[in-house]
Design a protein around this nucleic acid. Structure first.
Lengths: 340, 340
DNA sequence: CAAGGCAGCCAAAGCGCTTTGGAAGTCTCT
DNA sequence: AGAGACTTCCAAAGCGCTTTGGCTGCCTTG
């Protein structure tokens, strides 16, 4: 059943039927009802390919997925996707994942824009002066960044959490508990979120005349193994930290293991705080010692990004609007006063 | 730059240019070269929307993503995706994720098929007599199942690992080590993979005159918390198992925690084997006691599924071909002889 | 040398929608 | 009553590709 047939049964022109269906004003309400009715009755659904060709709109949002033998997709991605899907489902938006060589995402961005494959895209894990961001900005496709970049002379729309604030608060708590030697096990130091977290922590330390020594900060990709290794190094130093702030729950698993390896205890010998993106399958309250966290649901972020992308596509949202979500600091058993 | 312009510069008809580019035989090799050359020089890329409308092919593969507030996407998904992306990238295939209400995926399948949004789809986590499988089979879109179903009177193309064989081997090893009371912490019992795993284990037990008691098998969604809870229940029974086989590494984390809670040790009091889908961020060799596993890279499976989907789209693969991958049994420190 | 075959090209008809540029018909106002 | 302004609808022209059906001109073949 296509438009031609439908309009023929109604003895109307394709124009009128099309307009009736798409809510254009120049059609009689009575006629519109008739059309709508017939469309529903016959299960008419406009052919998206044809509509795409005519309008250039695809009804899909895009994400360029860096891939490669040495590239691991962040496990957070799946939770973000859950949220995105929650919203997208209700609006019949599909998501197109375009796998790209991690060393050359540009080609892929250009392709999907040139081909008008998607109406909007989102970027994640941005870095300062991120090339993708600059590219997408000049290409003129609607987009939203999940996270933030730095060092651009233009503004852009983003959704980020207050990483700096979160880690500032976490460090401040630890300092108030008497800790003087703090350490940070961070994510990839080239990504903005990691920079912000470090910044927040340094700010809190500076406020008390403390510093974060070079050896007390590790930047690694967020695996259990890396968390373990980083923690071991930290704890085996001459003057080990008495508190660690850690950028992910997965790494925190490794930290806990390292602490055990060394016969130490949490929070007796070491206080630990980690950032929690809220995974259903790994919860901080279930750690051997319930883990204090800075918490922000990445799933909700996914839903919000989808919502804003949809708004941008339909012109409801415009301009470089930034949105920063506060982060909860949830105190559980893994923190205590500094050992004497 | 579109076909019209290109053909005009070449003083050829659109027909000929189109055919030259698409490798049809009825065009002179000399002419083809000229066309190819000009196309490359001017960076001509056929408009996919137009091509879609004309051919009905989209150059994309689809996946219906069950979503909902109560639905969690399996963290394995992201690794599978890595593999899929690896292959797809090299072939300029995009993946369309269509979020669907987890209670009504059928509508979405029908939509993407009716709209010809994708050339092929894959299904995952099938159940016996899975409705999606039957649906997709009648809808006539090329597809591949990642996993297997049961109870159909037709065959279908799939890629699965030998879950039964893997768990058979794991159980057999434990039995040989003298264990008599084995337990299974399985995934969702309604999914085929879980059924196969249980079957494999029962078969190994039966071969030695042993059985898997009702209370010695738990089926839960694969979270750390559920692994912990299941293990505690098992271990607190009057006659606790001396060996546990567990369907995922994430659950194994919880098992290890439970063992510690109770002041027991691995492998002294309990032998443990888990299935490992090979995550980069959580590795069995890094468990407090290195974990024995049945191992199969879900990432490779993703790449293979993409490859076979591509083959089906282009007609290189046909018919209901099933493919079952063997699973490695990797023995590490977490298994030992049964305690006396 | 006529008939037939074939290689190589083309014009035009789709694919199914949106949108432009009217054209009727109806109202309002002077 | 006639001009102007709406309202409501339509025919047809895209969007950019693929594909059908056919037309040339050249080469074989008997």
């Amino acid at each position: 059943m296509n438009l031609k047939q439908l309009s023929h049964m109604l003895s109307l022109s394709q124009t009128t039927v099309s307009r009736a269906l798409n809510g254009y004003p120049e059609v009689n309400e009575e006629t519109r009802r008739r059309v709508m009715d017939a469309a529903k009755r016959h299960g008419y659904r406009p052919n998206p390919s044809a509509r795409r060709l005519a309008t250039g709109k695809s009804g899909m949002i895009g994400y360029v997925l860096p891939t490669g033998a040495a590239v691991d997709i962040d496990p957070h991605f799946v939770e973000f996707l859950s949220g995105l899907g929650d919203y997208a489902r209700a609006h019949e938006l599909d998501l197109v994942l375009s796998p790209a060589d991690a060393d050359d995402e540009e080609t892929t961005y250009r392709r999907i824009v040139a081909n008008r494959q998607v109406d909007a895209v989102y970027l994640s894990s941005p870095r300062p002066a991120d090339k993708r961001l600059a590219l997408v900005n000049t290409l003129g496709i609607p987009f939203i960044v999940h996270g933030r970049s730095e060092g651009f002379d233009f503004d852009y729309p983003y959704l980020d959490i207050d990483n700096e604030g979160a880690f500032h608060e976490a460090a401040r708590l630890l300092i108030q508990l008497g800790h003087k030697r703090l350490a940070l096990i961070n994510g990839n130091e080239r990504e903005t979120f990691a920079i912000h977290r470090e910044r927040g922590m340094r700010r809190a330390l500076a406020a008390s005349g403390l510093t974060l020594g070079e050896r007390h900060i590790r930047s690694v990709t967020m695996t259990e193994e890396n968390g373990h290794r980083a923690a071991r190094r930290l704890l085996e130093e001459a003057e080990p930290p008495t508190a660690i702030v850690c950028s992910s729950l997965i790494m925190a698993l490794g930290v806990v293991r390292a602490v055990r390896d060394l016969g130490l205890t949490i929070p007796g010998d070491l206080s630990l705080v980690a950032h929690d993106d809220v995974f259903p399958w790994l919860r901080p309250e279930n750690f051997p010692v319930p883990l204090s966290t800075t918490r922000s649901s990445i799933r909700l972020a996914g839903a919000r990004v989808a919502e804003r992308l949809a708004a941008r596509i339909s012109g409801l949202e415009e301009g470089p609007r930034g949105e920063v979500w506060p982060v909860d600091l949830v105190v559980r058993g893994s923190v205590a006063g500094a050992p004497v």
